[in-house]
Design a protein around this nucleic acid. Structure first.
Lengths: 167, 167
DNA sequence: ATAAAGTTTCAATAAGTATTGAAACTTTAA
DNA sequence: TTAAAGTTTCAATACTTATTGAAACTTTAT
């Protein structure tokens, strides 16, 4: 496979993987592009390379900056902004995990906590509901804790975690 | 909160959580409904409770059966099919993890494996690409292994995993 | 102050997903 | 068989989310 071809294929696949896991396609692609670029890129270059509009590029670059995985850079003497991806994949995954926990899991947990304390009544249906919502709350809450634990090791947590799990 | 209200709220929240994590809303809701029902439900009952069409119910019930987390049941003397959710949350999570690995991660890994062996050339750009795709391949592959490890403990893996991670 | 260079916003639109509903199909009991 | 009961399929449609492109805005150099 030629370099150009491999690169496109890679950007496509990474975008698809992203969107299956709840990160929008363009965002995943821009990130991937910045990841593999030896130099930081301008918005123009991102637009060109990925064939996307200015608005789209702007929105998603900002999104990436909000997630804390892309940074702006200014080159001396130049007016343009350049963008650079966090180069460390572990830290990238860690940041995504933290954000998703904060944005999605924690709010859902709040609702579950609330719902499981409904005005109890002795019907079969209500009892089962109580039991299951409690179980599910426990489960999600543990999963969230686990995510936190895995991710709270400073470096190379995937390898470390696998080693721990094998011991 | 009244039981009915709590139940609706729960079904809503669970549906939303599902769709954020790549499981379609209705599928997540049907599953949640079956989960909290003391008895198995007919398609009619699912449609009624969730206010969805017959087609939608049929498709998503089949989807859940494909994921292996819902089963058909036949009641003696009755012609109708009844549906029942796997009651064990750990096993549920395990099955979902296995399926997603198989359907999404493994295929992406195949592409990455392929792409990182492109016809090398000595440009800065190509070298960086080689390095990063290799790193990403390693990462995704480790993450997938980890998912496998976590999930391959028979029972109560969340708790067990947290204990391991704390040790 | 002003104009050029650059960025952001947002209404319009496109693209992608989910849902409906009715027709086709299958199964069962008489 | 046949018809009633039940299930599946799928084209049409609704809903949701992503993307565009042009106008508004901001910054910087003169």
């Amino acid at each position: 496979m030629e370099f150009k071809e491999a690169k496109d294929q890679f950007l496509q696949t990474w975008g698809a993987l992203g969107s299956q896991w709840g990160i929008n396609k363009t965002m995943a692609q821009i990130h991937a592009l910045l990841m593999i670029s030896p130099d930081s890129l301008s918005m123009e270059e991102v637009m060109e390379e990925l064939q996307i509009s200015r608005g789209n590029a702007s929105m998603n670059l900002r999104g990436l900056i909000d997630w804390g995985i892309v940074y702006k850079e200014y080159k001396p003497g130049e007016r343009k902004e350049y963008f650079k991806a966090d180069q460390d994949i572990d830290s990238l995954a860690r940041k995504i995990a933290i954000e998703r926990s904060k944005r999605e899991i924690k709010p859902a947990l709040r609702v579950l906590a609330d719902v499981k304390n409904f005005d109890d009544n002795p019907s079969n249906e209500a009892q089962k509901f109580k039991m299951k919502t409690e179980e599910l709350y426990e489960f999600v809450s543990k999963a969230d804790t686990m995510l936190g634990k895995i991710v709270n090791q400073k470096e190379n947590w995937i390898t470390k975690t696998i080693i721990k799990l094998m011991s």
